[in-house]
Amino acid sequence: MSNDRIFGLVVVLGALAFIAGALSIQSSFLTDPVGPKAFPLMIGAAAVLCGLVMLLKPDENPEWPDARAWLSMAAATLLLVGYAYALSPLGFLLSTALAAGGDQLVDPAPRTAGGADWHGTVGAAFRRLQIRPWPGIVRPATGAAGLRGDS
């Protein structure tokens, strides 16, 4: 089965789930003529159509990476997730150092100049940048966090 058919199916199912989610949105005491459900429903319907088109008219399959690359990418994902969790409680330096150590596990490829090798490179990058230890943590929030309308 072509990848696009699987993807199309996933899109259709996801869109149906989205529509189901939209239907369960609570209405408020003050509703306008459109309400909070209508627009998500329109999006869901459009996505179902797109999924069906993909299902019926698939493109050619892409070239997928080999098993080893998959493994590396999975390990990298885990590492990034771990880094995300570590950044807040451990602070910037410690978690980055840990991530740099965890690097060793990510890519089993041999160390080659300019290759995919990022063993310990985060640490190396730090040494090169001569970053001094910050006291404790990265402090959150300068302005603009709420500027989601920036377009």
Binding site: A141, A144, G146, R148
Partner: peptide, 8 residues
Amino acid sequence: VQVTNMAG
């Protein structure tokens, strides 16, 4: 004082 706009 830093001002953050957090609309919504």
